[in-house]
């Protein structure tokens, strides 16, 4: 059963993913990318905090975390590329589901950062 069914659950899940990505790059020794992931985590926590709108909290449907697999075991260059690509796909799927414009823009921006990295 999907856990991606509300504003907070989607935001918390993506925060978890960026936290995981920070650890992933730290383990590889890629400090720049680890720092970027951690900055995104901090930004996403702020977005979750500042953009929760009580009067438009509506169920989100059509998202399932199982559709967005991340292979954290592969630390090769190809593995890193695959992880970044998975993030791009994930952000492009979740952004349109969020009904708060500021949060939607922030998620799109995160996706663009992954695309560029």
């Amino acid at each position: 059963m999907t856990r991606l069914n509300s504003f907070g659950s989607v935001m918390s899940y993506v925060i978890e993913l960026e936290t995981r990505l920070t650890s992933y790059y730290q383990a590889i020794g890629n400090a720049d990318r680890a720092t970027s992931a951690d900055k995104r985590r901090i930004k996403l926590e702020r977005i979750r905090r500042e953009n929760v709108v009580e009067i438009t909290l509506e169920p989100i449907d059509g998202l399932d975390e199982a559709d967005f697999p991340f292979n954290w075991e592969d630390a090769s260059d190809a593995g890193q590329t695959a992880v970044e690509a998975a993030f791009v796909q994930f952000y492009s799927a979740i952004a349109p589901k969020i009904n708060v414009l500021t949060a939607q823009r922030a998620l799109e921006r995160c996706g663009q950062e992954h695309q560029a990295s």
């Binding site: 509300s6 907070g8 905090r49 929760v52 009580e54 909290l57």
Partner: peptide, 28 residues
């Protein structure tokens, strides 16, 4: 803002609402 999550969790614990609703309450 610094204790936002802590405050939200406490609302959930004593009131029973969801985290999103509690965060929305603290925001307002």
């Amino acid at each position: 803002e610094g204790r936002f999550e802590e405050l939200s969790k406490m609302i959930v614990l004593e009131n029973g609402k969801t985290m999103d609703e509690a965060r929305g309450e603290v925001r307002r």
